[in-house]
Design a protein around this nucleic acid. Structure first.
Lengths: 341, 341
DNA sequence: CTGAAAGCGCTTACAG
DNA sequence: CTGAAAGCGCTTACAG
């Protein structure tokens, strides 16, 4: 049988209260006793039960992580960062892939509450933000990777606006003037910000994009491919496309290939996220890197911070800088290739 | 405050035992009482505490999943499958990325034990298999994706041997005779099996591979690239390479590109796993697909099965069929390109 | 510095 | 069909 605190106490000839104190480094216990008790715990392979101590009001040392899909490389990397920071600090993480479905979200939240997790990190989209509001009132929460302005919670995001600007900046420097954007759904704040930053930077140089050059897509690769194909057959074909995530950029690459348009000599492509996908395509993608490690780590820190304070405090919003990673999908506008038919 | 079983009992004018029985559908409770109590639970938003019921000897409804790295797309997909099957059956999963380090493995196992998870799925490599043996004796365990023959535990794997044969078969049909392999570390059983199946099928057609055409690599892409580059500069350059995972194949593609060798016209590449990476490269990779969903689901089923039976039973070993997915990285040996210098 | 006792929110024989 | 009571393995005032 597994040893309990009673076994340790009996063996040491003390009360379980004393053992509990040495385990938790509370109260004053004489040095000798402490060492003796540690020795006994070791000998009996005693491991305190997290279950029992959680029931007594302490933490479960478990966190919930809600994301759209753990199989998506971007969220996989974020999850790894959350896991690592949590592990360092003594917390485990339960993964919850929601597919952005409110129903799954509510199911998962209900389970996490029943398991009394200490806090929840939310990286998933949802229709009904009331879910979030209620949740935020009943336990520590932090949102990662997006804004939900309707609700007041701690938030950590990449600086999407600045990322969009960097993408524009890079392309402008390469001489591009006729550009297009493959964006995600514009109901997502991060997509809006990326687009906004991109357009704004263009505007500063007097460069305008026609509305039909801005194409919102669903998350998937095929969508990116289809929209990019449409973009590439117009007579005012863009010389550069800014894609709001790596998957979309892969689609753009494929569309260009099918249309017989070479990247980067005839078309530059900049993507966003810089997941492993960006380094695997041909050509490898120039991409705006999100600091996924920091994103995950900060989210955990912000969450644990809330355990400490009793009163609800002002909600933080952390925006982390993105970084332009130049690979081979971008080049100077090449005038040798006429772009007007 | 959150409602407890006492609140429900008081409200219903019954004992907590009765409430407990209706929650767990145990014993005989009159239909009326049952319905009345359900109504009250609903009204009070009562949710039973998993913590408390776990302490009383019941399940925690939580599983541990040990894998090398959740950020690796292959394991991301497996994790998603495990999560989904678990969720269906009422279980949550805690992710544990081990980096294949025994130290991390032991830390995680210790945490999982303290949290009294109901079982552990192991998809990670380890040096010291004693860890596994001990673990298997103290709680339900299933190994996924590899064999650890030294220890008797339930196992679910892809049929790696058959997968290796399929790869060989495909290449033979395309007329290839001079082939090479980029394998993972041969200490991993699945790699050995893939290689073995591949060689064996070749042998059946009287095709031999020289020893220097079999190159074990570490997991990483750069490794694959370096080894492939070495392979491609010999005078007896292979016309086809079988890569034991997608990442290695990406490396091979890159090496070929740098050497100015075209895929598939001058070199065919077959990979293994069929993760998202295989569909994103240029050309997209012909790959031996592992049934990742089934792998995950079967692992969960095999684990839960163990909760039912008291006595340790014969250990199962499930090998799931792989499937050849033909994309554009393979083609007939092209005699137009002389391969001998 | 140490311990007795109550309590966390449940489940499970057992008795009626 | 229903309930009283013990117990799961801890922590926490409180008293000494």
């Amino acid at each position: 049988m597994k040893a309990t605190i009673y076994d340790v106490a009996r063996e040491a000839g003390v009360s379980i209260a004393t053992v509990s104190k040495v385990i938790n480094a509370k109260g004053k216990i004489s040095q000798e006793r402490r060492e003796e008790i540690f020795a006994i715990m070791e000998r009996l392979h005693y491991q305190p039960s997290v279950i029992a101590s959680a029931l007594t009001g302490k933490h479960t040392f478990t966190l919930g992580l809600l994301i759209p899909d753990i199989a998506n490389p971007f969220f996989g990397e974020v999850a790894r960062a959350v896991e690592d920071r949590g592990h360092q600090l003594g917390y485990s993480v339960i993964i919850c892939s929601t597919d952005n479905k409110d129903e799954r979200i509510e199911q998962y939240i209900s389970v996490l509450k029943q398991k009394r997790v200490d806090g929840i990190i939310i990286g998933t989209g949802m229709e009904n933000t009331d879910i979030l509001r209620d949740l935020g009132e009943s336990m520590p929460v932090v949102i990662i990777g997006r804004e939900v302005s309707a609700v007041s919670v701690h938030t950590v995001v990449a600086d999407d606006w600045q990322g969009g600007r960097s993408a524009a900046e890079h392309l402008l420097l390469l001489g591009h003037r006729r550009m297009a954007v493959l964006s995600e759904s514009l109901t997502v704040s991060s997509s809006r910000e990326r687009l906004h930053g991109f357009k704004q930077r263009l505007g500063e140089e007097g460069v305008m994009m026609s509305e039909r050059h801005v194409r919102p897509c669903k998350q998937r690769m095929e969508d990116g491919k289809r929209e990019a194909a449409a973009l590439l057959q117009g007579s005012d074909r863009p010389t550069a496309i800014f894609c709001c995530n790596d998957l979309l950029a892969v689609g753009a690459l494929q569309a260009a290939k099918e249309a017989g348009i070479r990247v980067p000599s005839e078309l530059s492509v900049v993507s966003f996220d810089n997941t492993i996908l960006a380094s695997v395509t041909d050509p490898p993608l120039t991409s705006i890197a999100q600091p996924m490690e920091q994103l995950g780590a900060s989210a955990v820190d912000l969450l644990l911070e809330q355990f400490a304070q009793e009163a609800p405090t002002v909600k933080h919003r952390i925006a982390l800088r993105t970084e332009l990673i130049v690979r081979e999908s971008t080049a100077c506008v090449n005038l040798a290739y006429p772009i007007d038919n």
